[in-house]
Every structure is written in structure tokens, then in C-alpha cells.
Simulated assay, not measured.
Amino acid sequence: MNQLVGPGDLVQMTFVPDDFKEPFPEVDPDSAATVAVIYETADLLIVNKTRGSKTHPNQPSERGTTLNHVAAYLGADQPGPYILSRLDQETTGALMMTKTPAVVPIMVRNIAEKRVQRTYLAWVAGHLAGEGTFDAPIGRDGSVKNLV
């Protein structure tokens, strides 16, 4: 999976469950009604995670998370989904997943090498003057009401 191939190369791959740390995640499918697909290929899926939903289950048989919903969307004949990124429960945005475990190390490498970049946008109250970069931890200010 980590070898460069060129035009005309013949590649044959056979995958067995022991090839992967967790080849078939134990995710109970849930309703696919909330899955909003942003981008999809045969191997990759990017969905819009809704605010208030967890990215993945934390307990066995937990349901109602984005991962459960995507598992239902993909159907029982798919081995995935496999999470490539995660968002906090109260955050909405694009969540990257693969449909097959073979794509995970490729995408992890692409993310590490900055071939895949993430941009975060935030809504703020008040007025920001000038420009700059936030490079310290950020969090919720309990004294400010939610705007959404």
C-alpha cells in the first residue's frame, strides 16, 4: 500500500482481516436520514457532521453518532466507514472517512504530508480589528450565549 506505482505496472492486492488493526469496526448502523454527503468517490466519503452529534461511539453498541449514521448510509455490504478526521460534538463541518481500510494509510500519509489541508472557520461575536493567527488553545466562553 505504500509503494509508488507507475504507468503500466500491474498491481494485485489481496486483503484479509489480519492485515489491519481493526479491519471491521464494530459500528451498529443507525438511520441514514441525517447523512449530508459533501463529496463521495468509490473509496472516500466526506459528510457534513451536524452540531450536537458525536463523531463516533465511545461505548460498545452506542448509537446515534455520525459514524453510526454513515454505516447505515453505506449499507451492510460495506466494510467501513473508517474515520480520517474528527470534530468535537458541538462542532459542525466536513468529516473525512474512507469506505475501505486499504485507503486509510494512504489518506493518513496525505494528511501528514499536508497534501490534504483543513481550513476552519469560526463565527465570532463583536468586531475583530486587523489580522493575525490564533496559535493558543481556544474554547467556549461560558459568559457568551450561543448564536446558533
Results as ranks from 00 to 15, higher is better:
Asp88Gln: 05
Trp123Ile: 15
Ala102Lys: 06
Ile38Trp: 00
Ala42Phe: 09
Ser31Asp: 11
Gln117Val: 14
Leu95Arg: 00
Pro101Trp: 08
Ala136Ser: 12
Met107Pro: 01
Gly142Tyr: 12
Thr34Pro: 07
Pro137Ser: 13
Pro137Met: 09
Asn2Cys: 11
Gly75Arg: 03
Glu113His: 13
His56Pro: 04
Arg86Ala: 04
Asp43Leu: 14
Val144Glu: 08
Ser53Arg: 10
Asp77Met: 09
Leu44Gln: 00
Leu84Gln: 04
His127Val: 14
Ser31Gly: 04
Asp88Pro: 10
Leu95Gln: 00
Leu4Ile: 13
Trp123Lys: 15
Arg86Glu: 02
Ser143Asn: 12
Met1Phe: 10
Gly93Asn: 02
Val37Tyr: 10
Gln89Glu: 11
Pro105Asp: 08
Ala122Cys: 13
Asn2Thr: 08
Gln89Tyr: 07
Pro17Gln: 10
Asn48Gln: 10
Asp88Cys: 05
Val108Arg: 12
Arg118Asn: 03
Arg63Tyr: 05
Val11Glu: 07
Ala122Trp: 06
Pro17Ala: 12
Val116Phe: 06
Thr66Pro: 01
Trp123Val: 15
Ala136His: 13
Asp88Tyr: 11
Thr98Pro: 01
Tyr73Lys: 04
Asp43Ser: 15
Ser53Pro: 03
Gln12Arg: 15
Gly8Glu: 13
Ile111Ser: 05
Val104Thr: 04
Ala94Leu: 07
Ser31Lys: 02
Val104Glu: 03
Thr50Trp: 02
Gln78Ile: 10
Glu90Tyr: 09
Pro57Ser: 04
Val103Pro: 00
Asn68Tyr: 02
Ile111Glu: 07
Asn68Thr: 00
Ile38Met: 08
Gly8Ala: 10
Ser53Tyr: 08
Glu62Gln: 15
Val144Cys: 10
Glu90His: 14
Gln59Gly: 03
Arg51Tyr: 09
Gly126Pro: 05
Ala42Pro: 03
Tyr120Ala: 06
Val116Glu: 01
Leu4Met: 11
Gly126His: 10
Phe24Asp: 04
Ser85Asn: 13
Gly8Ser: 09
Glu62Pro: 08
Arg109Pro: 06
Leu44Ala: 04
Gly80Lys: 00
Ile46Val: 15
Pro60Asn: 04
Ala72Val: 03
Thr91Ala: 13
Pro101Asp: 07
Lys21Ser: 06
Pro137Phe: 14
Leu10Lys: 14
Asp19Lys: 07
Gly64Glu: 02
Pro17Cys: 06
Phe15Thr: 10
Trp123Ala: 13
Leu87Ser: 03
Phe134Thr: 09
Arg86Asp: 01
Ala36Ile: 12
Ala112Lys: 15
Arg109Met: 12
Thr91Val: 15
Gln12Asp: 13
Pro105Asn: 10
Ile38Leu: 11
Thr91Leu: 08
Thr133Gln: 12
Arg63Gly: 06
Met1Trp: 07
Ala136Val: 13
Glu26Trp: 07
Phe24Leu: 10
Ile38Phe: 02
Asp19His: 12
Ile106Trp: 11
Lys114Gly: 09
Val47Gly: 01
Glu26Tyr: 06
Thr50Tyr: 02
Ala102Val: 11
Thr91Met: 06
Val103Cys: 03
Lys49Tyr: 09
Gln117Arg: 15
Glu90Met: 15
Leu87Cys: 02
Pro23Tyr: 11
Gly64His: 04
